[in-house]
Simulated scan of single mutants.
Amino acid sequence: MKGVITVVLLILSNIFMTLAWYGHLQWRENSWLKHAGLLTIILFSWGLALLEYFFQVPANKIGFKENGGPFSFFELKTIQEAISLITFTLFLIFIVKNEKLAWNHIVGFLLILLAVYVIFKKW
Rank of each mutant, 00 (worst) to 15 (best):
Met1Asn: 06
Met1Ala: 15
Gly3Met: 05
Ile5Cys: 05
Ile5Asp: 00
Thr6Cys: 15
Thr6Gly: 12
Val7Met: 14
Val7Trp: 09
Leu9Ala: 08
Leu10Pro: 00
Ser13Phe: 04
Asn14Tyr: 13
Ile15Met: 06
Thr18Tyr: 00
Thr18Lys: 09
Leu25Ile: 14
Leu25Ser: 12
Leu25Arg: 12
Arg28Leu: 07
Ser31Met: 05
Trp32Tyr: 14
Trp32Met: 09
Lys34Asp: 07
Lys34Leu: 12
Ala36Asp: 04
Gly37Glu: 04
Gly37Ala: 13
Leu39Tyr: 09
Leu39Gln: 13
Leu39Val: 15
Ser45Trp: 05
Ser45Arg: 09
Gly47Phe: 05
Gly47Asp: 11
Ala49Lys: 04
Ala49Arg: 06
Ala49Cys: 07
Ala49Glu: 13
Leu51Asn: 12
Lys65Ala: 03
Glu66Asp: 14
Phe71His: 02
Ser72Phe: 02
Thr78Ala: 07
Ile79Asp: 10
Ile79Lys: 02
Glu81Leu: 01
Ala82Val: 11
Ser84Leu: 15
Ile86Glu: 02
Phe91Arg: 02
Leu92Arg: 01
Ile95Val: 15
Val96Thr: 01
Val96Arg: 13
Lys97Phe: 09
Lys97Leu: 11
Asn98Phe: 04
Lys100Gly: 00
Ala102Asn: 02
Asn104Met: 07
Ile106Ser: 02
Ala115Lys: 00
Phe120Arg: 01
Lys122Cys: 01
Trp123Thr: 14
Trp123Gly: 15
